[in-house]
């Protein structure tokens, strides 16, 4: 076999791979830098649901109105979690106080989740009908799906089969 030919073919292959990889990385970084340069939280909504400026302005208004409520809920939940941790600290059993804190935390989470879903519904109504439906379905899938996954994994696990302990 001709050594020179083999060297040429291998060299060409190497150059080809290097060209492909370099152009891939350059384009990827350039795109990531320019597309995500905006620090706007609503950038995803504008791109994904192709919102017009007027629609985006309405969504932004709703978003800005919701954010302080969300922050308040987050603070309340965080405070309740700390209270629960304090109630559980050092205890070998679930005390009545801890149980009460758990119930309060649960109620807070329900309120927060309800408020969040209400906000998603409002935002979806500010979008064109089809995009609004898609947005609402996507947000419900993402925010509620997490809990569904946990519940499903628990019900599938043999250690959590109720009635078989």
């Amino acid at each position: 076999m001709n050594r020179r030919s083999l060297t040429i073919v291998l060299l060409a292959l190497g150059v080809g791979v290097a060209l492909l990889a370099t152009s891939f990385l350059v384009a990827q970084r350039w795109c990531a830098r320019h597309v995500t340069s905006s620090a706007d939280d609503l950038d995803w909504l504008r791109q994904e649901f192709r919102l017009s400026d007027a629609e985006l302005a309405r969504v932004r208004e709703l978003h800005d109105g919701y954010m302080p409520q969300c922050a308040v809920m987050c603070k309340e939940i965080a405070a309740k979690k700390r209270e629960l941790e304090t109630a559980l600290a050092g205890a070998t059993n679930v005390t009545a106080t801890a149980e009460g804190k758990l119930a309060e935390l649960g109620a807070l989470r329900v309120r927060c989740q309800t408020q969040m879903l209400r906000h998603f519904a409002e935002v979806s109504q500010a979008m064109p009908a089809e995009q609004g439906r898609r947005y609402l379905a996507e947000m419900q899938r993402i925010t509620l799906g997490f809990h569904e996954q946990i519940e499903q994994s628990m019900s599938q696990s043999p250690a959590h089969e109720h009635g078989h302990h």
Binding site: T36, D41, M67, C74, I77, M116, M139, T143
Partner: peptide, 15 residues
């Protein structure tokens, strides 16, 4: 990344 940013704003991890 943009989706994650939006989600972290409207659906914080505390839930």
């Amino acid at each position: 990344e943009a989706q994650a940013r939006y989600l972290s704003a409207v659906a914080p991890n505390t839930l």
